[in-house]
Design a protein around this nucleic acid. Structure first.
Lengths: 337, 337
DNA sequence: CTGAAAGCGCTTACAG
DNA sequence: CTGAAAGCGCTTACAG
């Protein structure tokens, strides 16, 4: 591999001058600058990031921590984040943690971060107290998306509004018997999204003077398969709900599947609405509440860049960005039978 | 941050001894070993990966290059890969390239890899000749999944078999008029999967003595939305196919959506089959041909680890792993009307 | 078994 | 504007 010394020799200057013309703040005489650039190009010189980091103290790497990639939200936001970071000269170290905190062994290791990354983007991962403590001890610039950790800046959507929009849509259609999928499970107990959505669901019914059917509020793990299984007894029951609100489109798709298997027509016999506006929502005609995932990713990156470039590492701006959501009615919701 | 010198001082030994007891091959006297370990623990010492890399020449980082994260295949395989790499002490640098080669600017930069990673996992990304040349110049250990690049080891599925299984399933049911979605688009022209699948489709019909309806073989970009749009005129046409084979489940889901909108019952009026066994396939009752994505990810990691640890960097084993697929008939395929 | 020292490839004050 | 030199925090022969 060619080093800075090779370039210096070919250009007939010192390594310091090479370093300066390549990134330096100081001025370099145009002619020597050209010589250096030519030599670097000729040798296909690429500075060793490892040496650069050691000397400069910055790694230009950001850790992106997600509980999984297989869910639409994470796949989408990671794509946006990786591109936004790259535009700003940062590389993305991906850490997929799994969504069950405190399993067999510690999921989070200091080695993942210490002196390896300049900052952390924490995506909707529930933490144990030990993990929170570790992150605090790390004292790295960090921005959370979805789940907030202690005093870290956070970007999220207005989860209460999202659920409220969905409920109000169903109420407006005339529904009174509404099932809900996706309360806070054990593994997400520390996260605000599941709790906020189900609370808003309950509140909206209450405001409308309607009862909440406790046995129709289901506590499952936010996958399509779990939703499909959990909703079956409810849809077979008598009476059964005339509408289902799923806290995510993936769960809503599971409900669609079960309705089809049971011979229930959607929306004639059953209305179904989700939250997300998943890639498949349009194609399947799924009514939903849309959240702008790329916007969340870009906002998080912007906030992290600010935090990493902040002079004083103490002055927590404790910023918080909350994005609005919007109703997208499609074909799976209609007045009750 | 605490350094190796801090640990050495606290333990009353030299930094060399600390380094040795922490990773060294050489023996260290049990008592000094204990002192060092205690000191390291007390100080929460974590070696600077940057300094370690510079001194040792290895980064313990692998670049994972994917065209996107938003497709099921990539989300799934990246999850597996990240975990497999971590188990072996490697970190994952994620690079999302976009699926259109040769856009505005070069997608691939030497800076992404040079002296930054020990190896590359190349996931199904079509390359331009310039990109291939760059990768060759890099001379890094590399394993490809899906798309093969020059002499690099590759893991893929038997694409011809996958398409054949699907066609034979439809033929067995009595279908003779079959549409096909997902031939090689411009952006995937250099990749073997799209071509292999459509060729196997054609061959299978030919073997059965059936004609291929050219206007029913559609060239789209492998998304559900594109499939939903492209299949519409075909399903509205007279005559129309009695079955659709989509080269991916995501496209098949798009077809399901359009069939529903047009009031076509599946499978009574139209059979639909995909390839993948996507997370949603079970829930939606989609017949498909299953590919084992985690197995592909694990195989790729194993091959890359071997390549990175190989003594002689020249002896290309040019290995190639081809995994079989299996038919998973569900509810969306039935005999033609 | 252990320490002193060179070296990995950069950056960055400090002189000039 | 440019160079010599120290320093970033490790690893690894080389002596002892």
């Amino acid at each position: 591999m060619t080093t800075i010394a090779d370039v210096a020799k070919l250009a007939g200057v010192s390594v310091a001058t090479v370093s300066r013309t390549l990134h330096g703040s100081t001025r370099v005489e145009p002619r020597t600058r050209e010589r250096v650039l030519a030599a670097a190009a000729e040798l296909h010189y690429v500075a060793s990031p490892t040496a650069t980091s050691l000397a400069s103290g910055r790694t230009n790497v950001v850790a992106v921590v997600a509980p999984m990639m297989s869910r639409w939200f994470f796949a989408s936001i990671v794509t946006t984040i990786e591109q936004a970071l790259r535009e700003h000269g940062y590389h993305t170290l991906l850490i997929v943690l799994g969504d069950r905190p405190g399993q067999e062994q510690e999921r989070l290791q200091p080695e993942m971060f210490v002196k390896r990354v300049d900052g952390i983007l924490w995506l909707n991962v529930a933490t144990t107290p030990e993990e929170t403590a570790l992150l605090e001890r790390l004292a790295l610039p960090m921005v959370c998306v979805g789940a907030a950790i202690d005093g870290a800046p956070t970007v999220l959507i207005d989860d209460r509004q999202a659920a409220r929009l969905a409920v109000e849509h169903l109420l407006g259609l005339g529904h009174r018997d509404i099932a809900y999928l996706g309360t806070a499970v054990q593994s997400t107990a520390h996260m605000s999204t599941p709790a906020a959505r189900v609370e808003a669901f309950r509140d909206s019914l209450r405001v409308a003077g309607l009862p909440v059917h406790a046995e129709w509020v289901l506590d499952i793990d936010w996958t399509a398969a779990a939703a499909a299984a959990a909703i079956e007894p409810v849809l077979r029951g008598i009476p059964r709900p005339s509408a289902v609100l799923a806290a995510s489109d993936e769960m809503a798709i599971g409900v669609l599947g079960t309705a089809r298997r049971l011979g229930l027509r959607v929306p004639e016999d059953l209305s179904v609405i989700g939250i997300d506006d998943h890639t498949f929502a349009g194609v399947l005609g799924l009514s939903t509440v849309r959240q702008d995932v790329p916007a969340q990713g870009r906002a998080a990156v912007t906030m992290l860049l600010e935090a990493m470039n902040a002079e004083d590492l103490d002055g927590d701006p404790v910023s918080r960005i909350e994005l609005a959501t919007s109703l997208v009615p499609r074909d799976t919701t209609a007045p009750p039978p």
